[in-house]
Nucleic acid binder design. Structure first.
Length: 376
RNA sequence: GGGUAGGUGCCCGAGUGGUUAAAGGGAACGGACUGUAAAUCCGUCGCCGUAGGCUACGAUGGUUCGAAUCCAUCCCUGCCCA
Protein backbone atom coordinates (compact mmCIF):
# COMPACT_ATOMS: atom_id res chain seq x y z
CA UNK A 1 0.00 0.00 0.00
CA UNK A 2 1.17 3.53 -0.78
CA UNK A 3 2.24 5.42 2.31
CA UNK A 4 0.15 8.43 3.25
CA UNK A 5 3.09 10.80 3.15
CA UNK A 6 5.71 10.66 0.42
CA UNK A 7 8.59 12.89 -0.54
CA UNK A 8 9.39 13.55 -4.17
CA UNK A 9 12.82 14.96 -4.92
CA UNK A 10 12.68 17.33 -7.86
CA UNK A 11 16.00 19.10 -7.95
CA UNK A 12 19.20 18.81 -5.99
CA UNK A 13 21.51 21.83 -5.77
CA UNK A 14 24.83 20.71 -7.24
CA UNK A 15 26.89 22.85 -4.84
CA UNK A 16 25.10 22.53 -1.51
CA UNK A 17 22.68 20.22 0.24
CA UNK A 18 19.72 22.37 -0.83
CA UNK A 19 16.96 20.57 -2.62
CA UNK A 20 13.60 21.33 -4.16
CA UNK A 21 10.89 18.76 -3.84
CA UNK A 22 7.25 18.08 -3.23
CA UNK A 23 5.49 16.34 -0.40
CA UNK A 24 2.29 14.46 -1.08
CA UNK A 25 -0.38 14.11 1.58
CA UNK A 26 -4.03 13.02 1.70
CA UNK A 27 -4.88 16.73 1.73
CA UNK A 28 -2.89 17.76 -1.27
CA UNK A 29 0.74 18.25 -2.17
CA UNK A 30 2.99 21.13 -1.34
CA UNK A 31 6.32 22.32 -2.68
CA UNK A 32 9.44 22.20 -0.57
CA UNK A 33 11.36 23.77 1.00
CA UNK A 34 8.39 25.17 2.81
CA UNK A 35 7.56 27.24 5.84
CA UNK A 36 4.58 26.04 7.88
CA UNK A 37 2.62 28.66 9.84
CA UNK A 38 1.88 27.58 13.39
CA UNK A 39 -1.71 27.35 14.55
CA UNK A 40 -1.32 25.85 17.99
CA UNK A 41 -4.92 26.00 19.10
CA UNK A 42 -6.43 25.02 15.76
CA UNK A 43 -6.01 28.54 14.44
CA UNK A 44 -3.11 30.56 13.19
CA UNK A 45 -3.52 33.44 15.58
CA UNK A 46 -5.45 36.33 13.98
CA UNK A 47 -5.32 34.87 10.44
CA UNK A 48 -8.18 33.11 8.66
CA UNK A 49 -7.80 29.98 6.51
CA UNK A 50 -8.80 32.01 3.46
CA UNK A 51 -6.00 34.46 4.13
CA UNK A 52 -3.54 31.62 4.65
CA UNK A 53 -4.52 30.15 1.30
CA UNK A 54 -4.25 33.53 -0.37
CA UNK A 55 -0.64 33.82 0.78
CA UNK A 56 0.06 30.32 -0.53
CA UNK A 57 0.29 28.25 2.64
CA UNK A 58 0.21 24.57 1.76
CA UNK A 59 0.40 23.12 5.23
CA UNK A 60 -0.04 24.43 8.74
CA UNK A 61 0.88 23.17 12.14
CA UNK A 62 -1.27 22.51 15.14
CA UNK A 63 -0.60 21.14 18.59
CA UNK A 64 -1.70 17.91 20.15
CA UNK A 65 -1.01 18.93 23.74
CA UNK A 66 -3.16 22.04 23.56
CA UNK A 67 -6.02 20.43 21.67
CA UNK A 68 -5.86 17.35 23.87
CA UNK A 69 -6.50 19.58 26.88
CA UNK A 70 -9.00 21.82 25.20
CA UNK A 71 -11.39 21.13 23.55
CA UNK A 72 -10.23 17.49 23.67
CA UNK A 73 -9.19 15.24 20.80
CA UNK A 74 -12.38 13.21 21.06
CA UNK A 75 -14.49 16.29 20.54
CA UNK A 76 -12.49 17.16 17.44
CA UNK A 77 -12.88 13.62 16.18
CA UNK A 78 -16.60 13.97 16.77
CA UNK A 79 -16.56 17.20 14.76
CA UNK A 80 -15.20 15.24 11.83
CA UNK A 81 -11.51 15.77 12.45
CA UNK A 82 -9.26 18.79 12.71
CA UNK A 83 -9.49 19.73 9.04
CA UNK A 84 -13.24 20.03 9.18
CA UNK A 85 -13.28 21.50 12.68
CA UNK A 86 -11.06 24.41 11.68
CA UNK A 87 -12.15 24.64 8.06
CA UNK A 88 -8.73 23.95 6.57
CA UNK A 89 -8.70 21.50 3.70
CA UNK A 90 -4.99 21.52 2.95
CA UNK A 91 -2.37 19.56 4.86
CA UNK A 92 -1.95 19.75 8.61
CA UNK A 93 0.88 18.61 10.82
CA UNK A 94 0.38 18.20 14.56
CA UNK A 95 3.15 18.31 17.07
CA UNK A 96 2.83 15.57 19.64
CA UNK A 97 3.25 17.68 22.76
CA UNK A 98 6.91 16.80 23.05
CA UNK A 99 7.83 20.44 22.95
CA UNK A 100 5.52 21.12 25.89
CA UNK A 101 7.48 18.54 27.87
CA UNK A 102 10.32 20.97 27.36
CA UNK A 103 8.62 24.36 27.57
CA UNK A 104 6.27 23.71 30.47
CA UNK A 105 9.30 23.26 32.68
CA UNK A 106 8.36 22.56 36.27
CA UNK A 107 4.77 21.81 35.35
CA UNK A 108 5.76 18.32 34.30
CA UNK A 109 7.46 15.14 35.43
CA UNK A 110 9.01 12.64 33.03
CA UNK A 111 9.04 8.89 33.56
CA UNK A 112 9.65 5.90 31.33
CA UNK A 113 5.93 5.53 30.88
CA UNK A 114 5.31 9.12 29.82
CA UNK A 115 4.93 12.64 31.13
CA UNK A 116 2.71 13.84 33.92
CA UNK A 117 1.68 17.44 33.38
CA UNK A 118 -0.06 19.92 35.50
CA UNK A 119 -2.42 21.52 33.05
CA UNK A 120 -1.37 25.11 32.42
CA UNK A 121 -5.06 25.94 32.22
CA UNK A 122 -6.41 24.80 35.57
CA UNK A 123 -3.51 23.06 37.28
CA UNK A 124 -5.15 19.63 37.09
CA UNK A 125 -2.97 16.58 36.63
CA UNK A 126 -2.71 15.20 33.08
CA UNK A 127 -0.77 12.33 31.59
CA UNK A 128 0.67 12.01 28.13
CA UNK A 129 2.53 8.95 26.85
CA UNK A 130 3.68 7.88 23.41
CA UNK A 131 0.53 5.80 23.08
CA UNK A 132 -1.84 8.50 24.29
CA UNK A 133 -0.16 11.20 22.21
CA UNK A 134 -0.30 9.05 19.10
CA UNK A 135 -3.90 7.97 19.56
CA UNK A 136 -4.86 11.56 20.25
CA UNK A 137 -3.16 12.67 17.06
CA UNK A 138 -4.99 9.92 15.20
CA UNK A 139 -8.23 11.36 16.54
CA UNK A 140 -7.25 14.82 15.38
CA UNK A 141 -6.50 13.41 11.96
CA UNK A 142 -3.62 15.61 10.83
CA UNK A 143 -1.81 14.37 7.75
CA UNK A 144 1.55 14.35 9.44
CA UNK A 145 1.79 13.50 13.10
CA UNK A 146 4.87 13.64 15.26
CA UNK A 147 6.45 11.15 17.60
CA UNK A 148 6.24 11.99 21.28
CA UNK A 149 9.76 13.02 22.24
CA UNK A 150 11.69 14.76 24.93
CA UNK A 151 13.22 18.01 23.79
CA UNK A 152 16.43 18.49 25.77
CA UNK A 153 17.21 21.95 27.07
CA UNK A 154 20.44 23.77 26.34
CA UNK A 155 22.89 23.34 27.86
CA UNK A 156 22.63 19.71 28.99
CA UNK A 157 25.37 17.31 29.98
CA UNK A 158 26.24 14.26 27.93
CA UNK A 159 24.85 11.68 30.32
CA UNK A 160 21.46 13.31 30.60
CA UNK A 161 21.32 13.96 26.89
CA UNK A 162 22.16 10.36 26.06
CA UNK A 163 19.60 8.94 28.46
CA UNK A 164 17.00 11.35 27.15
CA UNK A 165 17.81 10.32 23.59
CA UNK A 166 17.44 6.65 24.50
CA UNK A 167 14.07 7.44 26.00
CA UNK A 168 13.04 9.37 22.90
CA UNK A 169 14.04 6.37 20.78
CA UNK A 170 12.04 3.95 22.91
CA UNK A 171 9.11 6.32 22.77
CA UNK A 172 9.46 6.61 18.99
CA UNK A 173 9.11 2.84 18.69
CA UNK A 174 6.04 2.90 20.92
CA UNK A 175 4.51 5.66 18.82
CA UNK A 176 5.15 3.63 15.72
CA UNK A 177 3.62 0.54 17.29
CA UNK A 178 0.53 2.53 18.23
CA UNK A 179 0.11 4.23 14.88
CA UNK A 180 -2.45 2.31 12.82
CA UNK A 181 -3.95 5.07 10.70
CA UNK A 182 -3.45 4.60 6.97
CA UNK A 183 -4.11 8.15 5.91
CA UNK A 184 -1.58 9.75 8.21
CA UNK A 185 2.19 9.65 8.39
CA UNK A 186 4.22 9.51 11.58
CA UNK A 187 7.54 11.36 11.62
CA UNK A 188 10.39 10.42 13.92
CA UNK A 189 12.35 13.10 15.73
CA UNK A 190 16.13 13.18 16.02
CA UNK A 191 17.34 14.37 19.39
CA UNK A 192 20.82 14.18 20.87
CA UNK A 193 21.35 17.71 22.11
CA UNK A 194 24.59 19.31 21.03
CA UNK A 195 26.54 16.05 20.82
CA UNK A 196 27.48 14.94 17.34
CA UNK A 197 27.82 11.26 18.13
CA UNK A 198 24.42 11.23 19.79
CA UNK A 199 22.87 13.00 16.84
CA UNK A 200 24.37 10.43 14.48
CA UNK A 201 23.27 7.52 16.58
CA UNK A 202 19.77 8.85 17.04
CA UNK A 203 19.40 9.48 13.32
CA UNK A 204 20.65 6.00 12.40
CA UNK A 205 18.44 4.21 14.81
CA UNK A 206 15.37 6.21 13.78
CA UNK A 207 16.09 5.48 10.14
CA UNK A 208 16.25 1.80 11.02
CA UNK A 209 12.72 2.11 12.37
CA UNK A 210 11.71 3.50 8.99
CA UNK A 211 9.52 6.58 9.18
CA UNK A 212 8.01 8.43 6.21
CA UNK A 213 9.81 11.55 7.33
CA UNK A 214 12.34 12.72 9.91
CA UNK A 215 12.42 15.80 12.05
CA UNK A 216 15.39 17.40 13.69
CA UNK A 217 14.32 18.48 17.14
CA UNK A 218 16.02 19.97 20.14
CA UNK A 219 17.65 22.75 18.17
CA UNK A 220 17.12 26.49 18.40
CA UNK A 221 16.73 26.16 22.14
CA UNK A 222 19.18 28.90 23.03
CA UNK A 223 22.44 27.54 21.62
CA UNK A 224 24.66 29.65 19.35
CA UNK A 225 23.57 29.46 15.74
CA UNK A 226 26.89 28.05 14.62
CA UNK A 227 26.40 25.14 16.97
CA UNK A 228 22.94 24.52 15.58
CA UNK A 229 24.32 24.48 12.04
CA UNK A 230 27.00 22.01 13.08
CA UNK A 231 24.36 19.69 14.50
CA UNK A 232 22.30 20.07 11.35
CA UNK A 233 25.28 19.22 9.16
CA UNK A 234 26.03 16.03 10.99
CA UNK A 235 22.41 14.97 11.39
CA UNK A 236 21.42 15.46 7.78
CA UNK A 237 24.30 13.31 6.60
CA UNK A 238 22.54 10.42 8.24
CA UNK A 239 19.01 10.97 7.02
CA UNK A 240 17.80 9.35 3.80
CA UNK A 241 17.48 11.46 0.67
CA UNK A 242 14.13 9.99 -0.32
CA UNK A 243 12.32 11.17 2.79
CA UNK A 244 11.12 14.53 4.07
CA UNK A 245 13.33 16.34 6.56
CA UNK A 246 11.82 18.77 8.97
CA UNK A 247 13.67 21.22 11.19
CA UNK A 248 11.40 21.92 14.12
CA UNK A 249 10.86 25.37 15.51
CA UNK A 250 13.08 27.40 13.24
CA UNK A 251 11.87 30.46 11.43
CA UNK A 252 14.17 33.44 11.18
CA UNK A 253 15.27 34.07 7.59
CA UNK A 254 18.96 33.51 8.31
CA UNK A 255 18.27 30.14 9.93
CA UNK A 256 15.91 29.17 7.12
CA UNK A 257 18.54 29.79 4.47
CA UNK A 258 21.14 27.89 6.43
CA UNK A 259 18.71 25.03 6.97
CA UNK A 260 17.75 24.82 3.32
CA UNK A 261 21.38 24.92 2.30
CA UNK A 262 21.93 21.80 4.41
CA UNK A 263 18.96 19.97 2.95
CA UNK A 264 15.97 20.74 5.18
CA UNK A 265 12.57 20.61 3.48
CA UNK A 266 10.16 21.77 6.14
CA UNK A 267 10.24 24.41 8.86
CA UNK A 268 7.77 25.72 11.36
CA UNK A 269 8.02 28.56 13.80
CA UNK A 270 5.89 30.81 15.95
CA UNK A 271 8.37 33.60 15.31
CA UNK A 272 6.61 35.42 12.46
CA UNK A 273 3.22 35.46 14.16
CA UNK A 274 4.45 36.11 17.67
CA UNK A 275 6.75 38.87 16.66
CA UNK A 276 3.92 40.34 14.59
CA UNK A 277 1.69 40.49 17.63
CA UNK A 278 4.51 42.28 19.41
CA UNK A 279 4.84 44.96 16.76
CA UNK A 280 7.60 43.76 14.46
CA UNK A 281 7.61 43.24 10.70
CA UNK A 282 9.99 40.94 8.85
CA UNK A 283 11.75 42.03 5.68
CA UNK A 284 14.54 40.95 3.37
CA UNK A 285 16.82 43.36 5.19
CA UNK A 286 15.91 42.25 8.68
CA UNK A 287 13.39 43.25 11.27
CA UNK A 288 11.40 46.45 11.25
CA UNK A 289 10.15 47.25 14.73
CA UNK A 290 7.12 49.04 13.40
CA UNK A 291 6.02 50.26 16.80
CA UNK A 292 9.16 52.38 17.14
CA UNK A 293 8.83 56.17 16.99
CA UNK A 294 10.85 56.44 13.79
CA UNK A 295 7.87 55.17 11.77
CA UNK A 296 5.40 57.67 13.15
CA UNK A 297 5.25 59.61 9.90
CA UNK A 298 6.42 56.91 7.54
CA UNK A 299 3.64 56.59 5.00
CA UNK A 300 5.37 53.91 2.94
CA UNK A 301 4.35 50.27 3.11
CA UNK A 302 6.37 47.86 5.26
CA UNK A 303 8.10 46.70 2.09
CA UNK A 304 7.35 48.41 -1.20
CA UNK A 305 8.19 45.26 -3.17
CA UNK A 306 5.93 43.04 -1.10
CA UNK A 307 2.56 42.21 -2.61
CA UNK A 308 0.86 41.03 0.57
CA UNK A 309 -2.47 42.48 1.59
CA UNK A 310 -0.90 44.69 4.25
CA UNK A 311 1.76 46.15 1.99
CA UNK A 312 -0.61 46.73 -0.90
CA UNK A 313 -2.99 48.77 1.21
CA UNK A 314 -1.47 50.18 4.38
CA UNK A 315 1.43 52.31 5.53
CA UNK A 316 3.94 51.80 8.29
CA UNK A 317 2.50 54.83 10.08
CA UNK A 318 -0.99 53.35 9.98
CA UNK A 319 0.08 49.94 11.21
CA UNK A 320 2.18 51.55 13.93
CA UNK A 321 -0.86 53.53 14.97
CA UNK A 322 -3.01 50.40 15.14
CA UNK A 323 -0.42 48.55 17.20
CA UNK A 324 -0.02 51.46 19.59
CA UNK A 325 -3.72 51.87 20.19
CA UNK A 326 -4.01 48.12 20.63
CA UNK A 327 -6.26 47.46 17.68
CA UNK A 328 -6.42 43.82 16.61
CA UNK A 329 -6.28 44.75 12.96
CA UNK A 330 -2.71 45.94 13.39
CA UNK A 331 -1.65 42.55 14.74
CA UNK A 332 -3.49 40.88 11.89
CA UNK A 333 -1.83 43.02 9.24
CA UNK A 334 1.61 42.28 10.67
CA UNK A 335 0.84 38.57 10.97
CA UNK A 336 -0.38 38.47 7.40
CA UNK A 337 2.69 40.30 6.20
CA UNK A 338 5.19 38.18 8.15
CA UNK A 339 3.67 34.89 7.06
CA UNK A 340 3.40 36.06 3.50
CA UNK A 341 7.01 37.17 3.67
CA UNK A 342 8.28 33.80 4.90
CA UNK A 343 6.17 31.74 2.52
CA UNK A 344 7.31 33.90 -0.35
CA UNK A 345 10.88 33.79 0.93
CA UNK A 346 10.81 29.99 0.72
CA UNK A 347 9.21 30.13 -2.69
CA UNK A 348 12.02 32.29 -4.04
CA UNK A 349 14.58 30.08 -2.46
CA UNK A 350 13.00 27.06 -4.10
CA UNK A 351 12.96 28.79 -7.44
CA UNK A 352 16.65 29.53 -7.12
CA UNK A 353 17.31 25.85 -6.47
CA UNK A 354 15.28 24.85 -9.50
CA UNK A 355 17.25 27.31 -11.61
CA UNK A 356 20.64 26.26 -10.26
CA UNK A 357 21.34 29.60 -8.62
CA UNK A 358 20.85 28.83 -4.96
CA UNK A 359 24.42 29.82 -4.10
CA UNK A 360 23.81 33.17 -5.71
CA UNK A 361 20.59 33.52 -3.73
CA UNK A 362 22.43 32.68 -0.55
CA UNK A 363 25.13 35.26 -1.15
CA UNK A 364 22.71 38.02 -2.04
CA UNK A 365 20.57 37.26 0.97
CA UNK A 366 23.52 37.27 3.34
CA UNK A 367 24.76 40.57 1.94
CA UNK A 368 21.44 42.33 2.50
CA UNK A 369 20.24 40.79 5.70
CA UNK A 370 21.07 41.86 9.19
CA UNK A 371 18.92 40.79 12.08
CA UNK A 372 17.84 44.34 12.78
CA UNK A 373 17.15 46.08 9.50
CA UNK A 374 19.16 49.23 9.09
CA UNK A 375 17.16 50.44 6.11
CA UNK A 376 14.59 53.20 6.42
C1' G B 1 -21.61 85.65 49.02
C1' G B 2 -21.64 81.15 52.70
C1' G B 3 -20.08 76.16 53.41
C1' U B 4 -17.18 72.09 52.05
C1' A B 5 -13.52 68.95 49.57
C1' G B 6 -9.18 69.51 47.25
C1' G B 7 -4.55 71.29 44.33
C1' U B 8 1.60 65.72 44.16
C1' G B 9 6.27 64.21 38.68
C1' C B 10 3.58 63.99 30.99
C1' C B 11 -1.63 62.11 32.99
C1' C B 12 -4.40 59.57 36.98
C1' G B 13 -3.25 58.73 41.88
C1' A B 14 -0.93 57.01 47.07
C1' G B 15 1.58 59.49 50.73
C1' U B 16 -0.25 63.56 56.31
C1' G B 17 7.02 65.77 60.11
C1' G B 18 12.70 62.33 58.93
C1' U B 19 13.90 55.45 56.09
C1' U B 20 10.50 60.33 49.97
C1' A B 21 13.37 61.89 43.81
C1' A B 22 8.32 60.56 46.26
C1' A B 23 4.03 53.79 46.11
C1' G B 24 0.81 52.06 42.21
C1' G B 25 -1.42 52.59 37.45
C1' G B 26 -1.41 54.78 32.55
C1' A B 27 1.08 57.18 28.64
C1' A B 28 5.83 57.66 26.26
C1' C B 29 10.52 55.48 24.81
C1' G B 30 13.59 51.17 24.14
C1' G B 31 14.55 45.86 24.30
C1' A B 32 13.42 40.56 24.10
C1' C B 33 10.69 36.90 21.37
C1' U B 34 12.73 30.46 16.92
C1' G B 35 8.08 22.39 17.42
C1' U B 36 3.01 29.44 21.16
C1' A B 37 1.28 28.92 29.38
C1' A B 38 2.84 35.10 24.71
C1' A B 39 -2.24 40.93 21.50
C1' U B 40 3.22 38.57 26.26
C1' C B 41 7.45 39.74 29.11
C1' C B 42 11.59 43.04 30.60
C1' G B 43 13.97 47.82 31.12
C1' U B 44 14.03 53.36 31.20
C1' C B 45 10.95 57.15 32.60
C1' G B 46 12.90 65.40 36.95
C1' C B 47 18.04 67.49 35.51
C1' C B 48 23.55 66.86 35.40
C1' G B 49 26.69 63.04 36.54
C1' U B 50 31.52 58.30 38.47
C1' A B 51 31.00 58.89 43.53
C1' G B 52 27.80 62.84 44.14
C1' G B 53 25.16 67.23 43.34
C1' C B 54 20.94 70.21 41.84
C1' U B 55 15.68 71.21 41.25
C1' A B 56 10.88 69.32 42.80
C1' C B 57 4.61 67.97 45.67
C1' G B 58 -0.42 75.47 43.44
C1' A B 59 2.32 80.46 45.15
C1' U B 60 4.66 83.23 48.93
C1' G B 61 6.12 83.61 53.86
C1' G B 62 6.69 81.12 58.53
C1' U B 63 7.35 76.98 62.56
C1' U B 64 11.19 73.02 62.98
C1' C B 65 17.69 70.26 63.50
C1' G B 66 14.45 68.49 59.41
C1' A B 67 8.29 70.04 55.63
C1' A B 68 4.79 67.18 49.97
C1' U B 69 3.23 66.47 55.06
C1' C B 70 2.26 71.73 60.49
C1' C B 71 0.77 77.36 60.46
C1' A B 72 -0.58 82.13 57.79
C1' U B 73 -1.94 84.70 53.51
C1' C B 74 -2.97 84.52 48.45
C1' C B 75 -4.33 82.02 43.71
C1' C B 76 -7.04 78.08 41.38
C1' U B 77 -10.62 73.76 40.94
C1' G B 78 -14.90 70.41 42.25
C1' C B 79 -19.42 69.92 44.98
C1' C B 80 -23.49 71.88 48.12
C1' C B 81 -26.43 76.15 49.87
C1' A B 82 -28.03 81.09 48.76
Amino acid sequence: MKPAITYELIKQCPHTGARAGRIHTPHGSFDTPIFMPVGTQATVKTVSPEELKAMGAGIILSNNYHLFLRPGSKLIKEAGGLHKFMNWDRAILTDSGGFQVFSLGDLRKISEEGVTFRSHIDGSKKFLSPEIATKSQMDLGADIIMAFDECVPYPADFKYTRESMELTLRWAQRCKDTMTSENQGLFGIVQGGMYKDLRIECANRLVDMDFPGYAVGGLSVGEPKELMYEMLDITLEHLPKNKARYLMGVGTPDCLVEGVMRGIDMFDCVYPTRVARNGTAMTWNGRLVIKNAQYERDFNPIDEHCDCYACRNYSRAYIRHLVRVNEIFGLRLLSIHNLHFLINFMKEMRQSILEDRFVDFYQKFTANFSFNAKSV
